[in-house]
Simulated assay, not measured.
Amino acid sequence: MLRIHFGWRDVQNVRLAQQPDPLWELMCAVCRWQTGQGPLEFGHWRRETAGRLTRDPRGARALDMLRAFVPTAGYIPDLLTPPVTGEGLEAGLESVRTTPRGRLESELTRLSEATPPPGGTRGPRVPATASATLVTALLRDSFHALLGPYWQQVRSSVGDDVAVRARSVLGGGTAALLDSLGPFARWNPPHLEVDYPTDRELHLEGRGLTLVPSYFCWRRPTALADPGLDPVLVYPIARQPLDIVRSGEQRLEQLLGRTRSAVLTDVASHRTRTTTEVAHTLGLAPASASYQVGVLRGAGLIVSHREGKHVAHSATPLAFGLLAGNGQTFRRGSKAWSLP
């Protein structure tokens, strides 16, 4: 168990990342790639990615080398997940690229000396010539190989989780947010008791805690190894298998186009949605999101009305009928539209 100790300043400084962190997702995805865990949730992703890697030797080579830095259990160098959550892939890669040589050597030495878990095997050896530039290149190529084709779906799923957590904050403050992390964590003031593979004590000491929702995190949260770094807790979200999401969206894309189908799916997945929320979840410019919503409204798939200072959008029955072909069930009131 990981026991995180809170002071009153820490409770005031609990933060929730608003979107997935690319490098944390990559670390978790590399682990899922190697272990075969979650056959329902990740099986199609693994099979589809394996086929794509046969046509992408650069990505396959990068992923094979990156496995040396990301064991399936035990120590993973903290430098691979720098504290730039919310700033995107390139900001994270730049932070890795500028890692001081001393820190790089220290963390890679610790990695090479780590004992494999019981019943496990040590992965590929860390290259003797490893540099921050090499690691950065491996991360970039592996991200595009493992996560690039799925990033929109990952963002959407994380956005849904963030919306749920945000509502808990509005209803009950920080305590409700920490309570919402069950069943893999329990808020027992002044401690957050987290399901964790080893026993650890983490004292926040006024630094607060950043919560990072993750699609590829599996079964239990993960955290940085060095207690001296800014505290982060990465936790698994509720997810829908990517094969269901992608197969449905591919059919919609043929009819509406990729961006427009994503906007319609996002709006239909919520009671109401503002243009700002759509843009944030899908990573669109506000003007682009507004344009796509306008086109869908003109086609009779979205209706809009004002709620206070905001204009809220919701899907029409025609839209739900169209979306029923993607294998999901969308409910409005007492009626549900789903695949027959």
Rank of each mutant, 00 (worst) to 15 (best):
S142E: 07
P127R: 04
G123Q: 12
P117L: 13
L139F: 08
P149T: 00
G148L: 14
T121L: 15
Q152S: 05
F143D: 00
Q152T: 08
R122L: 06
V126Q: 02
R125S: 06
P124Q: 04
R140W: 00
L134D: 11
T133R: 08
P117V: 14
A137E: 14
P127Q: 11
T115I: 11
P149F: 01
G120E: 05
G120R: 05
P149W: 00
L134S: 13
T121I: 13
G148I: 02
T115K: 07
R122F: 11
S142K: 01
T115A: 13
W151H: 02
A128P: 10
R122M: 14
H144G: 09
A128Q: 15
S131I: 12
P118A: 13
S131E: 03
T136N: 06
L147K: 05
P116G: 07
R125D: 13
H144M: 12
T129R: 11
A132S: 03
P118E: 04
L147V: 09
T133K: 12
A145L: 12
V135A: 10
R140E: 01
V126I: 12
S142M: 02
P116F: 05
L147H: 05
G119D: 12
P124K: 06
R122V: 10
W151V: 05
T129K: 08
P127C: 12
G123R: 10
A137S: 11
P116R: 10
S142L: 13
P116A: 09
T133Y: 15
Q152H: 12
A132T: 08
G123W: 03
T115V: 14
T129N: 14
T115W: 04
A130C: 03
V135G: 01
P117C: 15
L138R: 02
L139I: 05
A130L: 09
G148V: 01
L134G: 05
R125T: 11
L138S: 02
V126M: 03
P124Y: 05
P118S: 10
L146W: 10
A132W: 00
Y150N: 05
A128C: 14
L139W: 11
V126G: 06
G119E: 09
G123M: 06
T115R: 14
H144F: 09
L147M: 07
L134C: 06
S131T: 15
L134W: 06
L146Y: 04
P118T: 11
G119W: 10
Y150G: 02
T133I: 10
Q152R: 09
T136R: 03
A145I: 06
T129I: 07
G120M: 00
Q152D: 12
R122I: 05
G123E: 12
V135D: 09
A130I: 07
G148C: 09
P127T: 11
G148Q: 01
P116M: 10
T133E: 11
L134N: 04
T129W: 07
A128Y: 15
T129A: 13
V126E: 04
L139R: 01
A137P: 13
P118F: 06
L147N: 08
G119F: 14
P116W: 08
P118M: 08
T136W: 00
P149I: 01
Y150C: 04
A128V: 15
L146E: 00
A128R: 15
T129E: 13
G123D: 13
F143Q: 08
P116I: 06
T129V: 13
T136Q: 07
